[in-house]
Design a protein around this nucleic acid. Structure first.
Length: 875
RNA sequence: GGGGGAUUAGCUCAGUUGGCUAGAGCGUUUGACUGGCAGUCAAAAGGUCAUCGGUUCGAUUCCGAUAUUCUCCA
């Protein structure tokens, strides 16, 4: 069976058991401060387990794209070195939300593995929870009973709390779990040591493939467990491992999931997989990371320099690094593997095919820039090596290596590798110390203390009512205090709210809540998981009473203008630039709107002009808003609604239509497009390879902008006495100005030459030296400098002192011919300092030329005398 | 969110105790050579040294702020 069949078989099997098959949620998580990426199959169902929202289907199955690169599950540094760790992987899972429980979950798992996938029974082991006295949980004899039907006692093992009791977090839903392990060692190995002794012992060939979690408890904040009324099943089976087992391989990377990519990579590198240990590691790293990056990009997460985007960038760089070091790639190569990946996985994940060009371009650009980073790093390292050797040291200062890593992004392992070739090492201790200091700095800067939720009441409410009203009677259900570096604030959760929480690019509402004539300001509204959280600096005096919540309507209206304009822009972009346009991000605030989209060239001025014009036409058409709140996804699709990759939609979606523009959207919009007034593009630019950004303003902001522009234009026009052709007038002035400037320069030069000629007449010979000391009249010191250098070129044996009064200050220049410096030991710097005493100033410069300034120009004649005396005394 | 770096000619970059009237290579323009293409040689043009402020006799260089950007940590 190939991997495509294996995946499909899983889904078909559970469909036949009345499960509804759902799509994978995006790998990039939004609206959850505790999680950056989806790291387990259950993530998208978290709200159901927490009881925040009801389950739409009691039985569900899917394959979920997961990424484990940060936080609790951080496998990044392991990947490639063994044969089974991955950054991105697929988790096959089936769920029961208060529906079936242990019996069915166990029976079906067994049926699928042994009956359909035909995995030999004698390779399998299962585990059940042994119980825990402290928690008062007995051994899971129920599960044990069901397993006994399928396999002999000696293949059923008891596991401890660490392996066989699953918890989501410190508190919340939890329960015992049963794991299915498989022993894929060869017979010889099996004779030496029994498989059952290797279960959960970290052996690469005796591995867990399926975890069946039975959620039946809730852990309270005080640590106690209570029975849940509704019991759930949550299972997860690693797809790549499953393929390895079914295809009789001993490494995930030997399955067809990875082999296509590895083969292609081998071709590009001119090496064969399996012929060299280090090269093999590199090839595994690259094959794995390619998937993570490609899927992240199609989910809308581009590599960038912070947060999730930065994690993606780091993964890509790790891949480039391995390719650079062990496969000798010096030019971008990873992007050349995208086509193979798309062919392999595009069936199950169509976004890969649809966005293939974008993925290739983004990866290539990233590779390019990192290879450049490596190049400059290597140059710097060369300097460091030279330095170290000069000092006769054998190890490089840890701080230096850290700077290379921290500031210039040059990886430590590469530093060490290159140093080793030179017989040098890095002082690891110093490096780690510097790293620790950096971490401490960051930690102390981001410390956020979150207090416990304080439950006030459980008032029933209508949730979000802000589509229809900006004012509502509300009650505060719970609140908590959050302490950050910038001070403290409170998070409030209402039963009903007219406040829109930041999402879909639209900023959160601000406003106030009021009781007994006392207002409490709400400065922002955000979403945490599915909760709408209102932020305030101050807690109302009596938080339990009734409030009137009022949204800042001015800002809301301005924001709506911009949001609707964004939809119109999206629509027009497809019309003007082509159907390939897809939203890659957007930001809608009261002040302006920002829209990012994939497009591979600069949007020309002419196109930009047409875009702006068309949007304004649509505004004037004054299309009425057509808002459909609860539409089945399939209906929305048939309406031609634009959906976003990387966005998770429910079965029921909200559709916003203005004329031909139809989008799935949760944001707030104007009643009719005419309200927007006017749309003006402020800028167009690139934010990354293949992604462009348009910024625009609307309504009163646009009006203000036009007014300012017109006023500026008018002001300029008045300066020119309102000419018929303003541009022509400015052009003419400009030309004249340049001409005059040239003439003035020429004049100045001429004067300087004249002055120089006069000065040449004044040269005297003192002790065989051509001496000249004069006060001259010039406009700026650059002219004196020019004259001094000219004289130096024309007069040998020169000792020159020029002084001038410029802007009420003395300006002194001393120039001495090179031969005199040696012969007479002159130093212009010390001479000028000495002379400057007469004008109450100081100065310095090089031995042959120095300048000084002084506050008392009246001393210049004395200064000239002193210069003469100085030379006389040299006799 | 915090730390560190970068910003010099159209492009890629040099330019360390603050003073060398700001440089190189590529590119551009012009001229010469060759029957043309191409090439070789010669010359020229091109810079508010990111912006604003400060220290100084003097700032591309030192200090502060801002902008843009890279990078590491969270």
């Amino acid at each position: 069976m190939n991997s495509k069949q294996i995946r499909q078989t899983f889904l078909d099997f559970f469909a036949s058991k009345d499960h509804s098959i759902v799509a994978s949620a995006p790998m990039i998580v939004k609206n959850d401060p505790t999680l950056m990426f989806t790291n387990a199959g259950m993530n998208q169902f978290k709200d159901i387990f927490l009881g925040n929202s009801p389950a739409k289907n009691a039985r569900v199955a899917d394959t979920q794209k997961c990424l484990r690169v940060s936080g609790k599950h951080n496998d990044l540094e392991e990947v490639g070195h063994d044969t089974y760790h991955h950054t991105m992987f697929e988790m096959l899972g089936n769920w029961s939300f208060g529906n079936y429980f242990k019996a069915e979950a166990i029976d079906w798992a067994w049926e699928l593995l042994t009956g359909i996938y035909k995995i030999p029974v004698e390779k399998l082991y299962v585990t059940v929870f042994e119980g825990d006295e402290k928690d008062g949980v007995p051994m899971d004899s129920e599960a044990m009973g069901y397993w006994r039907k399928h396999l002999p006692e000696e293949r059923i093992l008891k596991g401890n709390k660490k392996d066989n009791f699953w918890e989501m977090g410190e508190s919340g839903p939890c329960g015992p779990c049963s794991e299915i392990h498989v022993d894929i060692r060869d017979d010889q190995e099996k004779l030496k040591i029994k498989g059952r002794d290797l279960v959960n012992e970290g052996h690469p060939l005796v591995i867990e493939i399926w975890n069946l979690v039975f959620i039946q408890y809730n852990r309270k904040a005080n640590g106690q467990l209570e029975e849940l009324p509704a019991r759930h099943v949550d299972t997860g089976m690693g797809f790549e491992r499953l393929c390895m087992v079914i295809q009789n391989k001993q490494s995930n990377y030997d399955t067809d999931v990875f082999q296509d990519v590895i083969t292609r990579l081998g071709y590009l590198a001119g090496r064969k997989y399996g012929s060299n240990e280090k090269a093999d590691i590199a090839m595994r790293v690259i094959a794995d990371h390619l998937r993570a990056i490609a899927f992240a990009i199609t989910d809308g997460q581009l590599p960038s320099n912070n947060k999730a985007g930065y994690v993606i960038r780091r993964i890509l760089r790790r891949a480039v690094r391995y390719g650079y070091t062990f496969l000798d790639f010096r030019k971008p190569f990873i992007h050349q593997l995208v086509a193979v990946l798309a062919e392999n996985m595009g069936g199950a994940f169509p976004e890969l095919i649809r966005q293939q060009d974008l993925v290739i371009n983004v990866i290539r650009e990233e590779e390019d820039s990192f290879l450049k980073t490596l190049e400059t790093g290597i140059k710097m390292l060369d300097g460091i090596i030279e330095d170290t050797k000069k000092k006769d040291h054998t190890d490089v200062n840890g701080n230096v290596a850290f700077e290379l890593y921290d500031t210039f992004g040059f990886p430590l392992d590469l530093t060490e590798l290159i140093l080793r070739e030179q017989g040098l090492t890095v002082n690891r201790e110093g490096f780690e110390l510097a790293m620790e200091a950096q971490k401490n700095r960051s930690r102390s800067a981001t410390q956020l203390e979150t207090g416990d939720w304080i439950e006030l009441q459980q008032a029933e409410g209508d949730g979000f009512v802000g589509y229809d009203t900006l004012e509502a009677k509300i009650r505060i259900n719970r609140y908590r205090k959050v302490k950050g570096k910038k001070g403290e604030f409170y998070q409030l959760v209402f039963n009903t709210t007219p406040f829109y929480a930041e999402s879909g690019g639209q900023v959160g509402d601000s406003g106030s809540i009021e009781a007994n004539g006392i207002k409490t300001e709400i400065f922002d509204t955000v979403k945490e998981n599915n909760l709408t959280v209102h932020l305030t600096r101050q807690l109302p005096e009596n938080p339990g009473e009734d409030f009137t919540a009022v949204v800042n309507s001015i800002n809301r209206r301005l924001t709506e203008n911009n949001h609707t304009a964004t939809h119109l822009l999206d629509h027009v972009l497809r019309e003007v630039l082509g159907k390939h346009i897809e939203q890659k991000g957007s930001y809608v605030s009261p002040d302006s709107l920002r829209f990012d989209f994939n497009h591979f060239q600069k949007v020309t001025d002419e196109e930009l002009n047409r875009i702006q014009k068309k949007v304004n036409e649509l505004i004037r058409t004054n299309d009425q808003k057509d808002e459909l709140r609860e539409v089945p996804m399939s209906v929305a699709e048939s309406m031609g609604a634009i959906a976003l990759f990387g966005e998770k939609y429910g079965d029921q979606v909200r559709v916003i239509r203005f004329g031909d523009s139809v989008e799935l959207c949760g944001g707030t919009h104007v009643k009719a497009t005419g309200t927007i007034g006017q749309f003006i593009v402020i800028s167009e630019g690139s934010i990354s390879a293949g992604v462009r950004r348009i910024e625009a303003i609307t309504g009163s902001k646009a009006e203000e902008y036009v007014e300012n522009q017109l006023k500026a234009l008018k002001d300029v026009s008045i300066l020119f006495n309102n000419p018929a052709d303003l541009k022509g007038a400015v052009d003419e002035l400009f030309t004249k100005y340049h001409l005059l400037l040239k003439q003035a320069e020429a004049f100045e030069k001429e004067n300087a030459v004249k002055l120089k000629k006069e000065l040449l007449q004044q040269v005297e010979i003192i002790h065989g030296i051509n001496f000249l000391a004069q006060q001259i009249k010039v406009e700026n010191s650059a002219v004196i400098k020019d004259i001094a250098f000219q004289l130096k070129g024309e007069v040998e044996n020169l000792f020159l002192v020029l002084a001038a009064e410029i802007d009420g200050k003395a300006n002194i220049h001393v120039m001495i011919s090179d031969n005199l410096l040696k012969e007479k030991g002159f130093n212009a710097g010390s001479i000028v300092r000495d002379l400057a005493k007469s004008v109450n100033g100081s100065g310095g410069g090089q031995p042959f030329y120095a300048t000084a300034g002084g506050k008392e120009p009246s001393g210049i004649p004395v200064l000239i005398q002193n210069a003469r005396r100085l030379l006389n005394s040299q006799g």
